[in-house]
Amino acid sequence: MWALVLRLSGFTGALLVWEAVGRSDMFLEGYFPPPSEVFPQVASMLGNQLFLLDLLATTLSVAIGLGIAAAIAMPLGMILATSTLLRTASRAVLEFLRPIPPVALVPLAAIWIGGGPVTKIGLAVFASLWPILYNTMYAVAEVEPLLVATARSCGYGPVRVLLRVVLPSVTPFALTGVRLATPIALAVVISVEMLTGTSGGLGGAVLEAASGVTRMDQVLAIVIIAGVLGLSLHQGLEQLQRRGFGWTVAAREATR
């Protein structure tokens, strides 16, 4: 209860500060509108069918990107974690690719595959791979050796050990990687939409609101909606992890 009160107090305080700053003379008129002007725009946009299609386009792009990244990174992470040879051989390549900003690849991707949805989904996959991949690799390394040895003593082959012992232990940590990758994928998708200007979505809506007669109230409204979208995706994945792997939460609480 107290946690909820504190959160609401912090949120209310932030809105009051924003309102005061927005109505002060610190910024030119219209360049930093207060929440009393921004939130009506949020309500108006959520009632606009074209904007809802943009919101859906961004949401689907993020979801598809995360799904593809998880389908690639989880098996690859388990393979690399269990093979010293492959892990050593691929380390230089992975460490070279991991720090590359996905947005820097937009011109190259646009030349190769155009500026449509494939570009933003592909770059979202690239950005999301690394948290999922490294979480999976570290999780495999932390699997209890006694469990693996027990399974082998019961006649389990390598494949059954992987599916029956390693995979259940690794999946909660891989899902944590997906949660960590969610805001990254969302930021990349919106950035690509803004830079290409051809794939719609929230980024396209921001680009339209910021061009010509700049409507900062609409821009900030879209920023708020994007933040709520990211929070909703994160909370949804967290609830999925709690329901599907509640034993990990119970074990953590018992440890505490």
Rank of each mutant, 00 (worst) to 15 (best):
A104W: 05
A92N: 08
T196Y: 03
A104N: 06
A92W: 11
A151H: 00
I79M: 12
E193L: 10
R87V: 00
L175D: 01
I121N: 10
Y156R: 11
Y138A: 15
V170W: 02
M137V: 07
A124S: 14
L162C: 09
G122N: 00
I121V: 15
A71L: 14
V140G: 02
P158R: 12
V188P: 05
K120I: 11
A127V: 13
G155F: 12
R160V: 11
R152L: 01
P183G: 01
G155E: 14
A151Q: 00
N135V: 03
I111Q: 10
R87Y: 00
V161W: 05
L129A: 06
S90Q: 07
V159C: 10
R164A: 15
Y156Q: 13
G200C: 09
A139R: 06
K120Q: 14
L85T: 15
P168S: 12
A109L: 11
P107K: 03
F96Q: 06
G197C: 08
I132N: 04
L147P: 09
I100Q: 03
V178T: 01
M74K: 01
P168E: 11
S169E: 11
Y134V: 11
V159A: 15
I121H: 11
W130H: 05
V189E: 00
I113N: 05
S90E: 03
P75H: 09
L147K: 14
R164G: 08
F173G: 00
T88W: 12
L162V: 09
P99Q: 03
A141T: 09
L195W: 08
G122K: 00
A139Y: 06
R164T: 14
S169T: 07
L76G: 02
L146H: 10
A149P: 00
R91E: 13
A141K: 12
P101H: 10
A81K: 04
P145A: 11
P102C: 06
A104Q: 09
G116E: 09
P117L: 12
